[in-house]
Write a protein that binds this DNA or RNA. Structure first.
Lengths: 339, 339
DNA sequence: AAAACTATCCGAACCGGTTTGGAAGATATG
DNA sequence: CATATCTTCCAAACCGGTTCGGATAGTTTT
């Protein structure tokens, strides 16, 4: 059942039917109801390809996965993607996932030329992210999850990692901890840099030293969390508290603490950032982890909404948000043991 | 730059240019080269929407994520998706990811009516998976990763989980283990059932009992691996060996073994299935894990190729594959301690 | 030399929507 | 009553490709 057939059935023109379905005002209300009723009865759904060709909009958002990298094995990214797909669906768009095998840039170029997507979505922003400039140069509209310090203005949603770490560190410092380590993801990620800034700021405010050795960046995996924590615990001045940038890092961190014969909460305090993944819940830890929380899935959903707004003609300058994190008190952050 | 403009530049008709680009025979070889050269020079890329409308093919594969479920937080699924996206790209197709919020079925119906995808791709098949029947009823071609026992014939790629577990159990039985547990993912998954069949078969061949208590299905997470292992180790007849269906289950399993004061390899043997994720490498375990291996990313890539072949008119009956797993010997499977 | 191919190219129709520029009739205005 | 305006609808053009059914010129067959 296509538009022409539907129009014939109704004794109307394609024009009128199209307008009735798309909510234009110049169609009689009674006629509109007849059209809507018929469309429902015949199970009419507009052909997406035709619609796209006619409107010039592709009706899709794009995400490019860097081919060789392990980004996709990152469950946090996966969860973000799920939110994105959910949000795109709610906005009536498709989510187009592209894994480029011939380099990310070539992928973007092809997408731009083929007009395959309306908006590109970027995540895991780097401190200096060349992709943003490239996309703006290619004329592809962009929404990012994360932000960089650069001068370009682009719609973005970010989580206030800096404030999250700052509050976590201040909580720990307030409890009496003097040596507080930060275990975070890859150093070239903008989020990692933000966390370091927050860590520095909070330590500075409490008159504590932010020694370089207390900052461990690396892959956001259990393995790195374990190795980094282990290395720190056997150092001359081991920390009494750890702030971990993800639940996976925290898993490794906790395992290392246990392996060293120490008890979380009593001997060593831990605060982790929780992205809200169902597979690593802070309550499942022993003891339950104190966390900073922000749902990455919800963020993905919102990014899709921002992208839809951008296509809808909203002013890009109005489409940026930075979300505060929730600090959730559980049992893994306690006063340090008397020395 | 579109086809008409390109044709004008060359002094040819749209027809000829289109045919030259698409490799039809009725165009002079010299002309074809001229066209190809010009297309490259002007950076011409066909508009995907127009192409789709004209051919009736959408040029896209679809994957539906069940909205509410935690499937997406599953890194194995994420890795599969990455392979799928990669393979789709290589075949010149798009991959659309749909997260339905109004029920999976409604999502499929909409996709079918709108002719939005050429092939639907299903993963994580259930023992009785209604989706296959629904899709065939909707006239949507389907390729699955995994297979069920049902009577319907559909193109699929599956990993021989049954044989993987069988060989793992036989290895352990050969080493002298008498009580071998199986820790696997959700019980309603077809893969879990296959694993149970392999476990039963191998135990039976060695005259060992497959007690129900030694089989623990649940979410494929570290947490379930931990809890299941812990519960088994404190039972009256604790197993001396564990077969884990995923590296995450194995992580929890190993943690539980350590927490019980036991040593992997010496006291308890462990064999896990490794999907080839970069974030959980068997070599990173202490000791390195003996595994059955099959790259889920490569599987995704191949599924995309099968889907492309299906669109290309290949006989669906020829498009099924079951991949053997590799058994890789490391250090976590040893002879059991003398009692 | 007429008939039958072959190789190469083109015009026009088509895919299924959206959108422009009226047109007809009803209603309001002067 | 003539004119302006509003409401409601439609025919046709358009988006950018693919493809059917010739058309032309050159080559081979009889």
């Amino acid at each position: 059942m296509n538009l022409r057939e539907l129009a014939q059935h109704l004794g109307l023109s394609k024009t009128t039917v199209s307008r009735a379905l798309n909510g234009f005002s110049e169609v009689n209300e009674e006629t509109r109801l007849r059209v809507l009723e018929a469309a429902r009865r015949f199970n009419y759904t507009p052909n997406v390809s035709a619609k796209r060709l006619a409107t010039g909009e592709s009706g899709a958002f794009g995400v490019v996965l860097p081919g060789a990298s392990a980004e996709m094995a990152d469950p946090v990214f996966g969860e973000f993607l799920a939110g994105l797909a959910d949000g795109a669906g709610r906005c009536g768009r498709d989510l187009y996932v592209n894994a480029t095998f011939d380099g990310e840039e070539a992928g973007y170029r092809r997408l731009a030329r083929a007009k395959a997507v309306d908006v590109m979505i970027l995540a895991n922003l780097k401190v200096e992210d060349l992709r943003i400039r490239l996309l703006s140069h290619l004329g592809l509209q962009t929404v990012t999850c994360g932000r960089t310090a650069g001068s370009l203005i682009y719609p973005h949603l970010d989580i206030d990692h800096e404030d999250g770490v700052r509050r976590a560190v201040e909580l720990l410092a307030g409890l009496g901890h003097k040596t507080i380590a930060l275990v975070t993801g890859p150093a070239d990620l903008s989020a990692s840099e933000q966390r370091m800034v927050g860590w520095h700021a909070a330590l500075g405010r409490h008159g504590l030293a932010a020694e370089a050795g207390l900052f461990a960046a690396g892959p956001a995996t259990e393995g790195h969390g374990y190795r980094a924590t282990r290395a720190l615990l056997v150092s001359p001045t081991p920390p009494t508290a750890f702030v971990c940038a993800s639940m996976f890092l925290a898993s490794g961190c906790c395992r290392a603490i246990g392996d060293c014969g120490l008890t979380i909460g009593r001997d060593i305090s831990v605060i982790a950032h929780d992205d809200g993944l169902a597979i690593v819940r802070p309550e499942a830890f022993e003891p339950a982890l104190t966390t900073t929380f922000s749902s990455i899935r919800t963020a993905g959903l919102r990014v899709a909404e921002l992208a839809a707004a951008l296509v809808g003609g909203a002013d890009p300058a109005d489409l940026s948000e930075v979300w505060a994190v929730d600090l959730i008190f559980r049992d893994s952050a306690q006063a340090p043991p008397r020395r």
